[in-house]
Design a protein around this nucleic acid. Structure first.
Length: 125
DNA sequence: CTTCTCACA
DNA sequence: TGTGAGTA
C-alpha cells in the first residue's frame, strides 16, 4: 500500500508517518518513483509506536524496543534479555520528569497562595 | 489525482 | 506542525 491507504488504515497523518520513518521507526520500501510502499505489518507497527509513545517513551528508545518485542494477545512482550533493564532505565527517566513537574507545581502553588492572600477573591486552580 | 521533498513563518 | 510550491 502507499501513503494514502496507510493514512486511512492507521489514522496517522502523512506528516507523522514520514517523521516516524525519519526517526527509524519505520522503513517502507520505495518504488522507482520514490513513492513509499508499506506492508500490512507496518500498520501494526504504527499501532505499537503509538502505544509506546503514549507510555512516554522517546522515539529513540522506541526504535530500540520495537525489534525486541513480540505481540501476544493484545500485549507487548519483551523478547530480548537486555530490553527489560533498558525499560527500567526509561521508567526512571519518566519518574524524574514527574518529580520535576511536581516541583514546578509546588513552586507555582507558593506563588498562587501568596497571591490569594493579597486578593482573596481570586479562586485557585 | 497521488506522492515526493523542501522551505517558510 | 501545517501549508504551499513545483515534480515525477
Amino acid at each position: 500500500m502507499r501513503m494514502g491507504e496507510m493514512v486511512r488504515r492507521t489514522g496517522v497523518n502523512e506528516r507523522l508517518l514520514r517523521y516516524y520513518e525519519e526517526q527509524g521507526l519505520l522503513t517502507p520500501e520505495r518504488l522507482p518513483s520514490g513513492y513509499r510502499v508499506y506492508c500490512d505489518k507496518d500498520v501494526e507497527t504504527v499501532r505499537r509506536i503509538r502505544v509506546l509513545l503514549t507510555a512516554g517513551l522517546t522515539t529513540d528508545t522506541i526504535a530500540r524496543v520495537l525489534p525486541c518485542v513480540r505481540e501476544e494477545d493484545e500485549r507487548l512482550v519483551p523478547v530480548c534479555s537486555d530490553l527489560i533493564a533498558q525499560l527500567r532505565q526509561e521508567r526512571e527517566r519518566i519518574t524524574r520528569s514527574i518529580d520535576d513537574l511536581e516541583a514546578s507545581r509546588a513552586m507555582l502553588d507558593t506563588v498562587i497562595d501568596a497571591g490569594a492572600e493579597q486578593a482573596p477573591a481570586v479562586s485557585r486552580r
